[in-house]
Write a protein that binds this DNA or RNA. Structure first.
Length: 509
RNA sequence: GGGAGCUUAGCUCAGUCGGUAGAGCAACGGCCUUUUAAGCCGUGGGUCGCAGGUUCGAUCCCUGCAGCUCUCACCA
């Protein structure tokens, strides 16, 4: 049972006193921050506030408590001679850290100079029956603050309840997403919705989550790995500027920068290429940063990141050349030798393109800190992209990289339907990857759509969670995803599985 | 999936070179009408992650399992 026996008992006792512990509403006049921000106007005025009980300092016939809400915290003073016996008994014996309280009183400043509310009435808004581990805090210091990362991620409500900065991170995330929307809306984009459940998947190289549709005789279905193909159909259909913000689901590894479910912003803009979109991208991120953080420069892990445009641009081949590998002039055998010399596991399938991409990822990517557009990837790893003007082995593609982390991916989108078909076929002919998974199932309807005529288009994907990480100095994607995927706990799974004989007695007969 | 580490009261952590555990905060009782990590006096609370093994005896040693963290692999 998740409830604390002592608190359950206390709840029963208070209910027996005919106290309302879970009322329907509370008529609040100000948030706690509003009280603090309007101290002078509100001095000696009557206010009604609500908040969670964060501290209790009893001094006999006078008690000080601290109330906290989303972004504020304020002290409340309660005096015995100003309450009836029943309410004072509640105040003395019925309150626990974590309880939600409604306070009516006047604003004043104590002898110690603390802005406070002198309470004339107190109402319970929610009696807690779980021990909420509220830390003690003064200024920026905390004591006994909940620190176990597992609890913080699994029981996020406790994280938010006990740590204002964890709430702030969610607020910032919302501001960042809102700023992204505003930027695109103001640039004339149309926000559209694409399906999460698809009968066919595509638009990225990733393993999908498989499911089945009961209503269609358990026909196999997949969770979206990317909104790319539906968005391109919008372009074909005559919408020149569209975007979506959605969850993508990829059945891959889990680590500091990967959650199986993550938020992606993708936009497609007809009549533009990847050069145009590099500017759009740096404009979007820098303006979002300025809106959400107040500056285009932020500190991440003690280092400053400067998002001010223009960002550095570098091609994959140039970056390898700087590292002493002239990949443009090397064949597959020569590249394989580089892998062996450096004791790097070669990719499979091992083509010139895969080899070049692999060397870049192994040697260069993690060294890039300041915002950089890495451009012109090999054709082999980019089946939906137009070839680079002047070099048939490359495509017009860029990945913005910050602090070693890819925060996006963009193309001059391939628009020749026949070439698109050939790319799909050639990718299939390379066979399964080393996990035995065949990526990119053929989507003939998508080919037909492209066959109906797709104007030149620049397409961009942006990893929302990762941008939020960078802008909030978060070093795990779990810090910026409210409810990250967690493995089932042993005890929980045991409860569900149960021993067949054990709970037989509980079955109604 | 591989490797390393962690898991002791509601919270933060000690500790036992193997003899069934402690502190602070929180809780409970008492005193205190301008305190603020309030203070003072007193009380209760833990099958030391789970399951085995070694041992007269394990929370401490060994093995397995689970979760988490870091790291490598894979990927965005």
């Amino acid at each position: 049972m998740p409830f604390d026996p002592d608190l359950l008992k206390k709840r029963e006792e208070l209910l027996a006193e005919e106290l309302e512990l879970y009322p329907y509403s509370y008529d609040r006049t100000h948030s706690l921050l509003e009280i603090r921000e309007n101290e002078e106007q509100l001095m000696d005025k009557d206010v009604r506030v609500a908040g969670r009980l964060l501290a209790y300092r009893g001094k006999g016939k006078m008690i000080f408590i601290d109330l906290g809400d989303l972004d504020g915290r304020i002290q409340v003073m309660l005096r015995k001679n100003e309450f009836d016996e029943k309410t004072w008994a509640l105040i003395r014996h019925g309150l626990d850290l974590g309880d939600w309280l409604g306070i009516n009183g006047t604003v004043f400043v104590t002898r110690m100079g603390e802005l406070s509310i002198h309470a004339s009435s107190l109402e319970m808004l929610a009696k807690t029956v779980v021990r909420v581990p509220i830390p003690k805090s003064k200024d920026d210091q905390d004591w006994n603050k909940l620190a176990d990362p597992e609890t913080l991620y699994r029981e996020r409500y406790l994280h938010w309840t006990t740590d204002p900065s964890a709430r702030q991170k969610m607020v910032q995330r919302a501001q960042i997403i809102s700023a992204m929307r505003s930027f695109l809306d103001e640039s004339g984009f149309l926000e559209v919705t694409t399906p999460t459940i698809e009968m066919n998947y595509g638009g990225a190289e990733a393993r999908p989550f498989e499911t089945a549709i009961h209503a269609l005789s358990d026909h196999p279905a997949f969770l979206r790995i990317s909104p790319e193909l539906p968005l391109k159909r919008f372009i074909v259909g005559g919408f020149p500027k569209v975007y979506t913000i959605c969850q993508n689901f990829r059945n891959e590894g889990i680590d500091r920068s990967h959650n199986p479910e993550f938020t992606m912003l993708e936009w497609y803009e007809a009549f533009t290429d990847y050069n145009f979109q590099m500017e759009r991208f740096e404009q979007l991120v820098s303006s979002v940063c300025e809106k959400a953080c107040g500056s285009m420069r932020v500190v991440y892990g003690g280092k400053e990141i400067d998002f001010t445009p223009p960002w550095k641009r570098i091609t994959i081949l140039d970056s390898l050349k700087e590292a002493g590998i002239d990949a443009a002039a090397m064949d597959e055998d020569a590249l394989l030798a580089e892998y062996k010399n450096r004791e790097i596991e070669p990719p499979r399938p091992f083509t010139w393109g895969h080899a070049v991409a692999g060397l870049f990822e192994a040697l260069i990517e993690h060294t890039i800190e300041q915002p950089t557009f890495v451009c012109d990837h090999p054709v082999a790893i980019s089946p939906l992209t137009k070839k680079k003007r002047g070099d048939d082995r490359l495509v017009e593609r860029f990945e913005p990289i910050v602090m070693g982390m890819e925060i996006g991916n963009a193309y001059s989108e391939l628009t020749d339907p026949v070439e698109q078909q050939e790319r799909f076929i050639s990718q299939k002919s390379m066979g399964a990857d080393k996990d035995g998974v065949e990526n990119h199932p053929m989507d003939t309807d998508f080919l037909k759509a492209m066959g109906c005529g797709m104007p030149p288009t620049g397409g961009v994907g942006l990893g929302v969670d990762r941008v939020v990480m960078l802008l909030t100095d978060s070093h795990s994607i779990r810090e910026v995803i409210a409810f990250p995927l967690m493995r089932t706990r042993d005890a929980e799974s045991a409860d569900e599985e149960g021993e067949p004989g054990e709970d037989a007695g509980e079955q109604p007969s």
